[in-house]
């Protein structure tokens, strides 16, 4: 797969404050890439720089081989965007808004597709925005991003306000886009959703990328978790730093070990006791995220 988004040493400073600092990552054509991090980590700054809303202090962003600053108009032809705080105009109906947006994109023929998406999302396009709930407004935002069939989707917290059923519809829509070979760049707080959708994930903290890889690799890089049941009592003190154990907790009669790095020493250590059962627990994205955050605690 070829790279379609390339962020190279991007830095954005506001006075002395660095909103993002020297970050680099690439997104391949046809993949779903997730950028995760808490509020203020630099996700929106990165996305807004990609769209030329914010001008980088240093670094370069290229999208489909085009420069994000010089060629921003061409780039916008390729992009569907949903901002974190989507708002439509209160005095317009959903249909009027989508018609307006498709005209601005010179894609007025796509209004039929917009209507079919509205049907899928169970959205009444004849209601004025001021009569719609937050979730229904968000659906308009999702539809305007998708309905012109862009090559690249940039979505900031896309499922915010959607009920679980509509979140599922949204996930299906995303996967259909991926099937068509489109690229999706997504930022979300809903980590299970990112985990389910994304091929690769970057974790951003204090304006720096602290990890970036496929979900499988991130899982292997993160803390390993093992559930072990022993015959008889064991001394937790035996599992010190030398075994790589970072944390021990109990779940009923079983012990849960969080192990960092090489697990061989840990396995050797537990084999000194009589083991009844042993299970390796795959960390979910939330645990990976917390693991990387804890690892980088204090690093600014």
């Amino acid at each position: 797969m070829t790279e379609i988004i390339s962020v190279n040493k991007l830095t954005k400073k506001y006075g002395n404050f660095k909103a993002v600092s020297n970050i680099s990552f690439n997104v391949k054509k046809g993949e779903i890439f997730g950028l995760i991090g808490p509020n203020g980590a630099g996700k929106s700054t990165t996305m807004r720089s990609m769209l030329n809303f914010i001008f980088p202090t240093n670094g370069k962003i290229s999208i489909a081989g085009l420069d994000s600053i010089k060629d921003y108009l061409e780039i916008r032809n390729l992009i569907g965007y949903l901002p974190g705080e989507f708002t439509t105009y209160d005095n317009m109906t959903g249909l009027q808004y989508l018609t307006h947006m498709m005209h601005l994109r010179n894609k007025s023929e796509k209004i039929g597709y917009a209507k079919s998406l509205a049907k899928k999302f169970d959205l009444d396009l004849n209601k004025k925005a001021k009569q719609l709930s937050k979730g229904n407004k968000q659906k308009i935002g999702i539809i305007q991003a998708f309905c012109h069939d862009p090559e690249i989707l940039i979505l900031d917290e896309p499922t915010s306000g959607l009920d679980p059923l509509k979140q599922q519809e949204f996930d299906e829509l995303i996967l259909k886009f991926k099937e068509k070979g489109k690229t999706i760049f997504i930022s979300s707080h809903v980590l299970p959703e990112v985990e389910m959708l994304c091929d690769r994930v970057a974790i951003i903290k204090n304006g720096k990328i602290v990890a970036e890889n496929t979900m499988a690799k991130l899982k292997s890089m993160a803390m390993n978790r093992f559930e072990v049941a022993f015959k008889g009592d064991i001394s937790e003190k035996k599992f010190g730093k030398s075994t790589g154990v970072k944390n021990i907790s109990k779940s009923g009669e079983k012990f849960i070990f969080d192990v960092e790095g090489d697990v061989n020493k840990f396995i050797k250590k537990i084999s000194e006791n009589k083991v009844i059962s042993f299970r390796s627990m795959e960390p979910d994205l939330e645990e990976i995220f917390l693991s990387f955050y804890k690892k980088n605690k204090g690093k600014k």
Partner: peptide
């Protein structure tokens, strides 16, 4: 202020 500018400027409009 109301953030509607984001969507407009994500379209090919300078």
């Amino acid at each position: 202020t109301i953030k509607s500018l984001d969507i407009i400027l994500s379209a090919p409009i300078s």
